[in-house]
Design a binder for these strands. Structure first.
Lengths: 261, 261
DNA sequence: ACCTGAACACCGTTCAAGT
DNA sequence: ACCTGAACACCGTTCAAGT
């Protein structure tokens, strides 16, 4: 792990790690150049010598967090690829849960090193399966996008809550709000208000991930020998051109309507 | 549609709609009280009389955008629930694509009126299916979370791009970066670099959504009569307790490691 | 009740000057 | 090459004063 000490020579790494500490402690709003320069015992210009601006600093801090999530993963050989994909996803989920400010910034798939490495890892696991190479791109990015975006959403919700309240408190509070709604206009929401109490974001994330993986598997069995049901992530047409194209035509029209309101 | 005129009486609605216009025009950074008060030809205090602060203003603007997405949807009776869920999701996707600043703020499921209405709509469509009531909560929130979070991710990526470049230009540029990577450390990413060129976020979104819906359907056929394959979104155990619990135990341990670094 | 607008506290960024 | 720290431009929010 790179140095976090404030004294001595400054470097990009030192600045980024100091930023991460401030972000963890005070959230995104808490990262100011005033606090940062105090922590590093230097001037603003010194920081700007190592990073272009605050945006770049937060982006690098985010990529660093992704890096620690990947570094914490052991190869665990012997287990199948799907299990390891799930473990990889959970490692990222849990790491971002500890750095809730980072999740919304995990968007630079195509540029940041550790973020690209994450996609590389997912792809490497897919390559171990019987998935045909032609579908590697679509499936890997589907998993990547689900993983990063749902994690960001959950983490954002977590960080939006008041610092004092626990998640359980918050959910119970919200469940009461749901139950108090007008059943006429919100028949569904009022009906499931009770279920909100024992809701768990992490379980939800896992469920959705499993649905994605199951969806991939089921499209196999639909088009191939049913006896091969155990085959993981094999071929199968994933999109439904007809419906999708129709819907797209609809929406392109709607897009115009909205834009020209 | 509420008044957007600047002259005359001020109101919450007028302020929110002026904010939306500024957000659409200049992005989240472009919404300043200076620009807002100029547009409304008033003072800062007047705005603060109607909204608590900037955060609340952006939240209300976001909820308003969700509202327009829902308002643009016709019931289209005669089509099945799954098709209408897909149409609903696409309407939200396309609307947020026009207001990219809004997507990351669609997190207040439990409080904002239109955001809750979105969940209510999804639930209402699920209620038309043969899905048992006990699974309504889990499935509705799974769809809701996929929809809002992936949309936010896509919109965020879109708004992060330089204003001048088109999406195609950006992708071609990024594909070149991928191809230029070291094939030793990035065998997978360099291999799929070519696929990035004709990638479409919206298609990707649809594909993932279909995978989710397919996953739900396949879990039916696994546990019930194969002849009922056409049954949409019926019962079936969605989680895999064994794997999930094991992974959870692993991760709880890892969580500690990371936290105590 | 609703609005005005000056004042305040704060923050990201720059830059001439140093070593 | 690397750092200092004052200065600048800007921004969200407040508040005493008006109507």
């Amino acid at each position: 792990m790179p140095p976090t000490r404030s004294r001595g020579r400054l470097s990009r790494d030192v600045v980024v790690h100091a930023a991460i500490e401030l972000l963890d402690e005070h959230g995104e709003r808490g990262l100011t150049f005033k606090l940062l320069t105090e922590k590093l015992q230097t001037g603003a210009g010194a920081v700007y010598w190592h990073v272009a601006n605050k945006d770049e600093l937060v982006t690098m801090a985010t990529d660093q967090v992704i890096g620690t999530a990947l570094a914490g993963l052991s190869a665990e050989p012997g287990t199948d690829a799907e299990t390891r994909i799930r473990a990889l996803a959970l490692a990222v989920y849990d790491t971002l849960d500890l750095h809730t400010w980072a999740a919304p910034h995990v968007t630079a798939v195509h540029t940041m090193p550790h973020t690209m490495l994450l996609l590389e890892r997912i792809g490497g696991l897919l390559a171990e399966t019987q998935l045909p190479a032609g579908r590697h791109f679509a499936v890997a990015t589907a998993i990547f996008i689900y993983l990063t975006s749902v994690t960001a959403q959950d983490a954002g919700r977590a960080s939006a809550a008041a610092p004092g309240t626990t998640r359980d408190d918050l959910l119970r509070q919200e469940a009461q709000q749901w139950a108090a709604l007008d059943p006429q206009t919100f028949p569904f929401v009022t009906g499931i208000a009770a279920d909100l109490g024992n809701h768990d974001d992490r379980d939800q994330f896992l469920t959705g991930l499993d649905l994605l993986l199951d969806g991939l598997r089921s499209q196999v069995s639909a088009t191939s020998d049913p006896a091969k049901d155990q085959v993981i992530l094999a071929e199968g047409d994933t999109s439904r051109p007809h419906d999708a194209d129709l819907a797209r035509a609809d929406m392109t029209e709607r897009r115009r309507q909205i834009a020209g309101r």
